[in-house]
Amino acid sequence: MSRLGPGDVACWVLKSTRPPELIDPGWREGTVLGLTRCVRRSYRLDLVHPGQPCLLWVSGRTDPGVHALGEVTGGAEERDGGPVLPVRLTRLPSPVARADLLADPVARDAEVLRMPAGSNPSWLSPQQYAAVLAHLPPHPDAALGPWPV
């Protein structure tokens, strides 16, 4: 695939080398946190809009995979260090493991798995996003229903 279009992206993938407890030591499992994530300046930022789904992908050797999911809350903003994207994320009680997604016949083709050092934000197609959602751990408070997506 060359250039992404609006219909290609079902979910934005924001990558981090730091796990949630290092991003914010008070960020508990099952809780929501508003924050900004550094992103790379590219045409992709023109495709990102408030309300779109996003997730936090932690790379590295310790628990790589999806650690939080939520939504974009604003457009990309320029800061001293470059562009950032405001998001609201709910921390999962356990990550969706990279190994589980590599074993999934649909998810394994996701850009973040094929090209881990690729662009930030990365993205998931509608089918890949559905595959990731199918791997989510149960919500810690069953009375609240499924994870917000």
Rank of each mutant, 00 (worst) to 15 (best):
G81R: 01
G145E: 11
G30N: 05
K15R: 08
L47I: 08
Q52P: 02
S125Q: 08
V72E: 14
E21N: 05
R88C: 07
V9M: 12
D109E: 14
V66W: 12
A10S: 09
L89V: 01
R41H: 07
W27L: 13
Y129W: 15
L4N: 10
G82L: 05
G82T: 10
A134V: 06
G75V: 08
D24P: 04
R28C: 03
M115A: 15
A97E: 15
W27I: 12
A107I: 11
R28S: 09
G65F: 04
E29C: 02
L85D: 02
G81S: 07
V84F: 00
A110W: 06
L33K: 06
A117N: 12
V112P: 01
L144I: 07
L69V: 08
S2N: 15
G118A: 13
Y43L: 03
L35F: 00
D109K: 06
P86W: 02
Y43E: 05
H49S: 04
K15Y: 01
L133T: 12
V149I: 05
A107R: 15
V66D: 04
P116G: 03
A99D: 12
E71S: 09
R88Y: 01
G118W: 10
M1C: 14
D24M: 09
P53A: 07
H139C: 06
V39M: 09
D80T: 04
G26N: 02
L102D: 08
V132F: 14
V84P: 00
T62V: 15
V13I: 13
M1V: 15
E71K: 01
G74D: 12
T36K: 02
L92V: 10
H139V: 03
A97D: 11
